[in-house]
Design a protein around this nucleic acid. Structure first.
Lengths: 236, 236
DNA sequence: TCAAAAGTGTTGACCCTACACCCATGG
DNA sequence: CCATGGGTGTAGGGTCAACACTTTTGA
C-alpha cells in the first residue's frame, strides 16, 4: 500500500514529497592477510578530500542494485561485483547538503583478482581495523555491513572465491580469522572445514611459505551443492 | 559518498533524480494460536479494494522509522509499535503509477493487547498461511519479513510480549510453533526454555484449559539481561 | 642440525534428540 | 471412574573445545 494524502479516497502520488536516494557500497576485500575495505577520496564539497565509501545517486530508471553496480564501476572500474543490500539509512540530516536517504550494499572480493582501473578517485584499500573515520554516517554503515558479513559467513560457505583457486588451509583460516577478527585453533579449524565436505584436497603442495610445503585445496561446487540442505553453521 | 554528475569536481545535488520513497509495514500478530498478519483494504486506485500492507510515503522531514510509525498509526490507530527494517525494494515498475522505492518494516505484536481503533480501512488479521494475495510486491516483502522474524526468534528471546504477562509453557510453545510453522516435542521445548533461564515460574495455575491446570510463567527481565552475553540459540 | 611452518587425534564436557508414562481434576 | 491436557527424566549420539608433539626440508 502506498498512500499520501492519508485517508483520501482519490489519490495522486504527485502530491508526495520526493527525496534523493543514494547507494553506498561497502566493498570488503581480502589480501591473504587482512580484511580490508575500499574507500575513495571524495571529490567535491562538502567534506571534499575526506575518505568516503563509494556512493552515488539512484537514477529514475534503475534499481538500487543497478545503481550500486554502475556507481562502483564508475568510481573504481570494478565490474561484475555482486553486492547484497545491508540497510537503508534515513536520518534526516545525515547528508548536510540535502535530504538524502541512502541504501548500503556490500560485497566481499578478492583484492588480487580485481583491479582498480580507475585511479581518478584515489580508491584505496584500508584494513578494516585501521580505516580512517569516514564522512556522514558511513562508519555506521560499515559496522552494519560487517555484522551482516559475519552472519553470512556463519551460515554459508562464503568467501572461497576470495582465495586463489587453489589455496592452503592456512590461507582459508586466515580469511575466517580476518572476517571474525579473532584466532582459531588450527586443528579444530581444519576439522570443522573437513566436516563441511566441500573441498577437494589436491596432491600438489604450495612450497612458498614453508620448507615442508602445505597441501592445496580447491572448492568443490558439486560437493557444496550436495551439502546445501544440511545446515552450515560456522561459529566463531 | 554521494555523487551525481559522476566525476564532476563541483557538485550540485539538485541535478539528481528524486523518487518517491514509501514504507510498508508488515505487522505480525499472535492470537495464542496462529501467526497472523495485518492487512488493510487499499482505498484508492490502482488496485483499490485489494488487500495490502499498511504503507505510505516518506515525508521530507522524517526518518523512515518515523514514517512507518506515523503511517501505521494513521491507518490502524496502532501506537507505540517498534518496527525493524527488513529491506528496501526498488524494482522500477513495482508500483505501476509512478516510480516508488519502498522500505519494508516489520513488528510482532500481541493482538489482544493492541486494538485496531481505526476501522476505516478494514484493517484485519489474516493467518500468514491463509492470507490473500497482496498487491505489487507485497507478498515478497512478507516472505522477507518472515525470514527476518525467524532469524530473530532464533537468536533472541523474542516475543514474550506477545503473550499475556503470565503465560503457560503450552502457550509459549504455540507461539514458537506458529513462528516456525512446525511442531516441537513438549519435553524438549520446556528443557530448552528452562535452560535459557529467563523465566519465573509462578505458584499460580491457569485452570482454563485443563482440569489439572498448568503453571504460569512470567518473563524475567533481570534474568534475561544476565543471560544477555551468553548466546541464545533456538533452532527450530 | 636447526628453524619454521605443516600436519595430525583424543578426550571430556556438554547438548541435543528421541521417546512413554503418570498426575490431577472436573464432570 | 474416565477423559483430557499437564507434567516429568534419561540414555545415546554427536559436536565442540582444549590440548602438544612430530614431520619435513632448505639453509
Amino acid at each position: 500500500m502506498e498512500s499520501g494524502n492519508e485517508h483520501a479516497t482519490t489519490y495522486q502520488y504527485h502530491a508526495e514529497d520526493k527525496v534523493l536516494l543514494a547507494v553506498d557500497c561497502i566493498i570488503f576485500g581480502f589480501d591473504q592477510e587482512d580484511l580490508k575495505i575500499l574507500l575513495i577520496k571524495r571529490g567535491f564539497e562538502p567534506e571534499k578530500g575526506k575518505w568516503s565509501l563509494v556512493g552515488g545517486f539512484l537514477k529514475k530508471e534503475e534499481t538500487l542494485e543497478d545503481a550500486a553496480t554502475r556507481i562502483l564501476k564508475s568510481y573504481t572500474g570494478l565490474d561484475d561485483i555482486y553486492m547484497e543490500q545491508v540497510d537503508t539509512f534515513s536520518e534526516v540530516n545525515r547528508d548536510p547538503v540535502e535530504r538524502t536517504v541512502s541504501t548500503a550494499y556490500y560485497a566481499l572480493i578478492n583484492i588480487k583478482e580485481h583491479s582498480i582501473s580507475n585511479k581518478q578517485f584515489s580508491a584505496n584499500w584500508f584494513s578494516v581495523s585501521k580505516a580512517p573515520h569516514l564522512i556522514f554516517d558511513h562508519d555506521k554503515m560499515v559496522q552494519h555491513a560487517l555484522r551482516r558479513l559475519r552472519n553470512r559467513a556463519a551460515t554459508e560457505p562464503i568467501g572461497f572465491d576470495l582465495l586463489p583457486e587453489k589455496f592452503t588451509m592456512r590461507q582459508l583460516q586466515k580469511l575466517y580469522e580476518a572476517i571474525w577478527d579473532t584466532q582459531f585453533d588450527k586443528r579444530n579449524f581444519i576439522n570443522k572445514i573437513h566436516a563441511m565436505n566441500i573441498l577437494d584436497k589436491l596432491a600438489e603442495k604450495d612450497m612458498t611459505t614453508s620448507r615442508k610445503g602445505s597441501f592445496l585445496y580447491k572448492f568443490d561446487a558439486e560437493k557444496s551443492k550436495a551439502q546445501n540442505d544440511k545446515s552450515f553453521d560456522f561459529k566463531g
